[in-house]
């Protein structure tokens, strides 16, 4: 059942999939509810794996007494219905899936990334806005970060290298500024 997010009143069929905001009959709050067939789909419980009754049948690598139904598309191990994990239209064993996640080989399993381009840009801008003097340290750091992480992947969504370029340019200008300051101090 779908209910109003404000008052919890169940929504009637006239209020769903209208594509416009409608007033809730109970609280008068405006809402739009897009409901899809998955709401009424039963969750599958998973296959338990069929027990081997004759010696001629291939067994699962992880469960010797279970019948193999499919090989892992990554390592080739035979898998029973319980061990077979379908992911990204591929059949894999739990070990390969775990390895793929820990070694970041499967993009769709990645749930965290550090974007060094963003950090470099922040490091280039904020010390300059707060107090200028920390840039004597942060500017070389930004140049180093830009060079070191240039080829490392940033975010998983499309992004250009503009942050690195901007960070590098700002840091280069800061370094240039400090050089001018030092030269002026020495010559005086």
């Amino acid at each position: 059942m779908i209910s109003c997010t404000n008052c919890g009143t169940p929504l009637n069929s006239r209020m769903i999939n209208t594509n416009v905001m409608m007033a809730c009959p109970s609280c008068d709050g405006f809402l739009r509810a897009d409901v899809y067939p998955a709401l009424f789909k039963e969750l599958s419980g998973g296959e338990p794996g069929e027990t081997i009754l004759t010696d001629s049948l291939a067994s699962c690598f992880f469960h010797q007494d279970k019948k193999a139904v499919i090989p892992c598309e990554s390592c080739g191990r035979f898998l029973c219905a319980l061990c077979d994990i379908e992911f990204n239209n591929l059949h894999m064993c739990p070990l390969c899936l775990e390895k793929g996640k820990s070694k970041k080989k499967i993009l769709n399993l990645e749930n965290r990334r550090t974007c060094y381009d963003t950090i470099a840009l922040y490091l280039a801008i904020f010390p300059m806005l707060l107090f200028f003097w920390p840039t004597i340290l942060t500017a070389p750091m930004v140049v180093f970060m830009t060079a070191w992480y240039w080829k490392k992947p940033t975010t998983i969504v499309p992004r250009t290298k503009i942050r690195y370029i901007l960070a590098f340019l700002i840091a280069a200008l800061q370094i240039l500024g400090w050089i001018v300051v030092f030269v002026l101090m020495i010559t005086r």
């Binding site: 405006f30 739009r32 509810a33 899809y36 060094y116």
Partner: peptide, 19 residues
């Protein structure tokens, strides 16, 4: 600068409600 990702597969989405 640190990104965290949540994925919602289209086949699993039951509803989207905005108020």
């Amino acid at each position: 600068g640190v990104e965290k990702y949540n994925r919602f597969y289209y086949r699993d989405i039951q509803s989207i409600i905005t108020s």
